[in-house]
Design a protein around this nucleic acid. Structure first.
Lengths: 237, 237
DNA sequence: GAGTACAAAATCGTATACGAAGAGTAGGCA
DNA sequence: TGCCTACTCTTCGTATACGATTTTGTACTC
């Protein structure tokens, strides 16, 4: 329901609604439509060669996912993430991702673990000559391996939505708090050891959750925004 | 985004889309549209005195919330909850409700606690001459008091969505496993004691989560569906 | 008698058109 | 010169209309 194109069975191009949804979503996560960008129905419709009706539906779907904000009789804009939203999103993500990882853990194969290790090694290598965007991408790859086997599709969907929200800021906390990157790699190793060792679900969940919470904390203390959150903005503040 | 009419600031009647959304959602949770009921756009539109376009939008929103299922070129039906869905929903709800309750705990006032106690007393009284529907309603009231102060609106929204999903089966697990009702009341008392005593967030979260998980477990063992889940259906199996 | 092919009805998907609400701008008045 | 007001322009909201697709009923054949 949230994945744009899995293999071939998705009638993505079948419905113009879906087409519009995919296209707009793509442009948002790609950064072609930056946060705050106004989404004018007629313009998008013409651009995609369809009528406004499917576009309108697409926008409403994106609104439900939190990727755009909507105001009646005014229009939609790409939902930039202000610091408060970032806090809420990261908090929610720590919750659902922790659970998804724990539920996935028993289903993760040896080859998956190997892949995850490889990705983490790449992240470690990425530490010198640090590139936040690349690091963030690898970070997502790493975690995706760990939670994608989650048997509960609802929880998995929530994880995807959280990641999508964060995708609008192209580089994550690591851009502002590069020190956090090194810790992150170590925590990944620890998490892998837990899973490989067959640790119980609770331990995995706690580790995964704390891992993300720690990133959030690093962000918060960096901007010393424990009280005046609305001052610091990751991208445009 | 999920609450139909808070006080006065919601332009519920302002937009026909919103009007349709509220109306259809109401009928679904009320049971006027039972699970499996076909939602025909033209019929609903005529019934509400609007065109099909706003109705269509409303349906799509309800789809995003999981209250209706949609099939291209076929139509929408009220999303009955099959046992697998029930499992997923309860599991997700235990996760997000546990977190919401924990985050709310420090913000719960003495009067709130008193209200919650009163509701739980009513549930206890309801145990003799057991009425599952009434008990379920009180149960929701009880938990709503505990999680409504959750400062993270995303998590709070997820809790609401979970409850809405479950609302389509008018009476919950308690209908099939009345023994669980008594335990539930006791666990409520325990949870209140934890919150009143200022227990740390982790303890509250665990208690709240286990409380719901226990209800799910009661359901699962009752139908002895630990493996063959798809056999037992709560309402229409 | 059962299965298949065709046709008709029902329903959805999208386009176009028009009315309504908000935002920006220019002009007038204090 | 500054502020208020009226007007226009953009953009959204909804209705109506038509084409596309699926389902279902029926007749025909094996």
């Amino acid at each position: 329901m949230a994945e744009p194109a899995a293999t071939t069975d998705v009638p993505a191009a079948g419905s113009k609604s879906q087409q519009a949804y995919d296209a707009v979503k793509q442009r948002i996560v790609d950064g072609a439509y930056p946060p705050g960008h106004r989404l004018v129905l007629a313009a998008i419709a013409q651009d995609l060669g369809v009528s406004v009706v499917p576009v309108r539906e697409a926008i409403r779907r994106l609104e439900a996912e939190g990727l755009v904000t909507f105001q009646r009789n005014v229009g939609a804009t790409v939902a930039g993430i202000d610091p408060t939203e970032y806090l809420y999103t990261m908090q929610t993500l720590s919750l659902v991702e922790g659970a998804a990882t724990a539920l996935s853990a028993p289903l993760i194969s040896a080859t998956d673990l190997e892949r995850a290790r490889a990705v983490n090694d790449a992240m470690r290598a990425c530490l010198q000559d640090f590139d936040p965007v690349r690091f963030t991408r690898l970070n997502q790859d790493f975690h995706a391996i760990l939670f994608e086997h989650c048997p509960n599709p609802h929880i998995l969907d929530l994880v995807h939505r959280g990641w999508n929200r964060l995708a609008s800021l192209r580089s994550s906390t690591f851009r502002f708090v590069p020190e956090r990157a090194r810790e992150s790699v170590e925590e990944h190793a620890h998490l892998l050891a837990l899973i490989a060792g067959g640790a119980d679900a609770d331990a995995v969940e706690r580790a995964a959750r704390r891992h993300r919470s720690a990133t959030l904390d690093a962000y918060l203390t960096h901007f010393s925004t424990t009280e005046a959150i609305s001052d610091a903005s990751p991208d445009h503040g």
